[in-house]
Design a protein around this nucleic acid. Sequence first.
DNA 1: TTATAGATTGCCT
DNA 2: GGCAATCTATAAT
Length: 223
Amino acid sequence: MQPSGVSARQRKPLSVRFFNRDAATVARELLGKLLVRRYQGELLVGRVVEAEAYLGQIDPAAHASAGQTPRNAVLFGPPGVAYVYFIYGNHYCLNVSCMPAGSAEGVLFRALEPVSGLATMAKLRGLDLRASELHDLRLAGWSSRLRSISSGPGRLTQAMAITREAHNGMALTSARSELFLADDGWRPERIAVTPRINVTKAADRLLRFLIAGNPFVSAKRIR
DNA sequence: TTATAGATTGCCT
DNA sequence: GGCAATCTATAAT
């Protein structure tokens, strides 16, 4: 499988309408799209290779299952907005709200394939990658260290300097935004669907979507 | 007021 | 494979 991130095609931001649909559809269609972060004058870009759908109040595994709280309020708002939460005392996780206000569906970003800004992303992750490793992407494949830049929900937020304080509640639908989603026309060949990772409730629901064969998909441990 | 589980990761053996 | 790190929400005392 060749790296997908070398396209110079135009990047068009995803619309509010894109997110105004059920989370499973949005999660599936987000695969192959770009997450773009403006960071200190540089563009950090990653392609979405793994995402999970959470179906709001009817979904026992969703943060919204117990109703609206200050933490999850963004999920109950309009579509296309970032919901960032802090988990296990260590990590931020990025979601985007789906469906109209009043419905609390959302999609969790679980893994990205780095496209540009690799050196900065590696630095934000605390990885001391050699220049030769950073060039891996343009050559044949990916080193395991390179793979750890953004393969995991906590890793990708760290690689893009995404925090709750800075980004929770931010609309992800404007190309002028500090953080947004875009479509460059690239499409995955094959999509796989599995149960969600590390959820104990509704553990049999097939709501995890990933690009089959992509090396940046997160570890598949299921508790 | 205290306990515990959680949409995780990295380091240890 | 085990487990510590350590914030947040909710359940139990």
